[in-house]
Nucleic acid binder design. Sequence first.
DNA 1: TGCTGCGCACTCT
DNA 2: AGAGTGCGCAGCA
Length: 579
Amino acid sequence: MSEPRYREWILETIDSLRSRKARPDLERICRMVRRRHGSDPDRTRAELEKLIQEQTVLKVNYKGSVSYRNAAKVQRKCRRKVEQAERSKHAAFDNAKNDNISARSPADREALELTPCRGPSPSSCSRSAEEKREEEDDGGEEEEEEEEEEAAAAAAVSPATGGISSLTSCDGRNGSCDVSGPAAGRVEGREDTRSVLGHASCDLPEPERRTCTSARNNKQHAPQVRAAEGSVRAVADLGDRLVAAVWSLTERNNRGHAPLGLKEILGYLGTQAAHADGEKLTRHRVKVVLEREIEKGRLRRTRLGHITENIKEEESMEVECKEDGKMDEEEAEPLTQLEPQTIKPEGEAEVKVHVHAPLSAGVEVKACGGSVPHTPVIMEEELQPSPLTSPSKLSSAHQEAEQCGTEVEMVAQGESIHTESLTQDQREAIPDQVQTLTQDELVAVSDGVTIPPSIPIKNYSVCKAEVGVSSCLLTPSASPGAAEERGMNGGVFVKSESSITNPVDWTVADVASYFTAAGFPEQALAFRMQEIDGKSLLLMQRNDVLTGLSIRLGPALKIYERHVKVLQRTHFQDDEAFC
DNA sequence: TGCTGCGCACTCT
DNA sequence: AGAGTGCGCAGCA
């Protein structure tokens, strides 16, 4: 962990250099830190390296030279760009098809060739020979470190992130780390360097590129789409858990995090381990299973070596969205189709459900007015009214459905989830859509991840649409280790137990309550607004807390250092065992 | 000598 | 047109 003091100094220096239009390179940063704070350049360099690994600082190769960025700022820009790119995605893809350059700003493109910051990212691979020479000149110690990382990155997988990704393709099978794909064609010098930079996951043949868009869409609706995250606990099979982990981590990456690596997957699975079968996860084992899932087609390795979920269905949805085309541009992007969700009511045949997941309920509202209602009626998470279901999402979905003029009612205990007021067209458009779902042992299946019917779903109470977060709280946890149960009693939820002992099981409301109790009521609201549940909380990084929640820096730092980090440390402490 | 501000060019969307 | 980046130069301490 970098020293906070140096972190501030270095970020401040980078910002300062940028503001005066000077390249924030290593030399300038060290010099300025020394001048301002008297710090030893070597120490500054070391701290900078730590910050890079922590993703606080991004190392980029811009116009043939190494430069550094304040990750928080770059990520914000990336997100903005991604959003913009989404609006014009189809056109952008046409362009990208021609020149392998995605519709991204130079900053984003730089970010794509960042020296990976954390985990088993193939750091040295993404750098040019020039950079390496430069680092050798710097003493070579950085490269040594990165070589170690490289070795550790034998099976690194890096799904496309929200813009921060390495161009490097790492061969996860033999441990080699080769520049391939666009990076392979990289040439020293400004224009060449730029020209070969593209969105990692978009540097694909057209079909895959389309998938890339879908994936990005998908990630943008992560809360709705990634319900599999919650299902991890309920899935005994490591492969299933792995797939779910990739989904979940991909969601996280959507917010501008580091490329997903095996370490992250391992870490994630580690957090789930206590809830799963208790098996010992080893790097090798996960790697093997990862390869297996790729072979099975449940995961996909991009040409750049990144791992993403296989989302063929989303491609088709993208076409649908395109055809819809009547939505406001801003609202068009949220549409995505999930892989048909299989709902297996008790004792009944499987029912495939096509899910249209909006980016957010709020955004969705306008779209509802479109001539082609995208039948967001049944959201994925609605279809997983299990502990996996996020109450707030359900609530949002309900709100959305109601605003669409579509009534959704989710009923428990032998009652049904059904849609009403759907037009005939809508029904036809989703022929497999569940009309009725028996409860009690409703089994949600996500992307082939089957939850055994033996896992009971508790307290799936009647849930009338409510506007507001957590106003419709279903049982947040029915996993074996779940400590919290909520019951509905005359519209008032009663917390029967506390899940404080296990943050993984925390709901959004629990997280908010935690921070409220910790003395950050205002910030707790931000967590709630961002729908941070326990799992998300454990996945949060410093930048997420500092910048992703739009809360003031002071409280953010305290929250991260005193709470988030502590919680994470507790729950990731066994990471070492996996890695 | 070193730092700072900024005009300007370049590249991209 | 606007944004992001940074080279190169002038002014200043």
